[in-house]
């Protein structure tokens, strides 16, 4: 099993795909992300062949949208995650997912400029360490929300917990991550 590519490597691959339609860089992105995206779709309840097909389609979209990727605005993993999440909601749940176009709203207010320019100094290692260190009961709920697409009410029903408990655990887990991002919680 090879090591995970570094943040800088990922950005290099994205740039090569966006600027030069570089096949080798795209293959590197594929090798790293496609198997994880497929696992993500399986966890979301897609049957094997469908997960395979949608993982491929996610990669096609990544190729197609690579020119929109701006390293100053998003970390590579978060950007890939958004593409996979949106396709998953569209195809598996057959619902629309409404998002805001950050490029367009950023022009409206000066303060927004700072706020939207999120994440160029993210320390992936530290976030990963924080995620790994989450208490099991918080981690479980984070996983149910992200990987099984369960709403808070559904998580409560699944685990037999009051909605308030589900919310406070999600809030606590997110607060720990925000500290790793250098935010004041």
């Amino acid at each position: 099993m090879e090591d995970s590519p570094s943040h800088d490597e990922l950005i290099e691959w994205f740039s090569a795909v966006a600027l030069r339609q570089d096949r080798r860089a795209f293959e590197s992105l594929f090798n790293h992300f496609a198997p994880k995206i497929k696992r993500y779709l399986l966890r979301q309840g897609a049957p094997e062949h469908h997960a395979e097909e949608l993982a491929q389609e996610t990669m096609v979209q990544i190729w197609r949208k690579a020119h929109q990727y701006d390293p100053a605005k998003a970390v590579p993993g978060a950007w890939v995650y958004r593409v996979a999440r949106n396709l998953r909601i569209d195809r598996l749940r057959r619902q629309r997912f409404y998002e805001v176009d950050l490029d367009q709203v950023a022009e409206q207010a000066d303060e927004a400029q700072d706020h939207d320019r999120a994440t160029d100094q993210i320390d992936g290692e530290q976030i990963r360490a924080r995620v790994a260190a989450l208490p099991p009961e918080q981690r479980e709920i984070v996983n149910l929300a992200y990987f099984e697409g369960l709403s808070q009410s559904e998580i409560g029903a699944r685990l037999g917990l009051p909605l308030g408990t589900v919310k406070s655990r999600l809030r606590l887990a997110f607060g720990k991550l925000r500290k790793a991002l250098g935010e004041e919680v």
Binding site: Y81, A109, D116, T119, R128
Partner: peptide
């Protein structure tokens, strides 16, 4: 803008969680 920033952070978390998944080879 405050909530947009937070949503960006939830997506960073999503990206990191994706990294924690085992590979399902195609």
């Amino acid at each position: 803008p405050r909530c947009r920033r937070r949503v960006t952070e939830t997506e960073v978390l999503g990206g990191e969680l994706l990294e924690t998944l085992e590979d399902s080879p195609l």
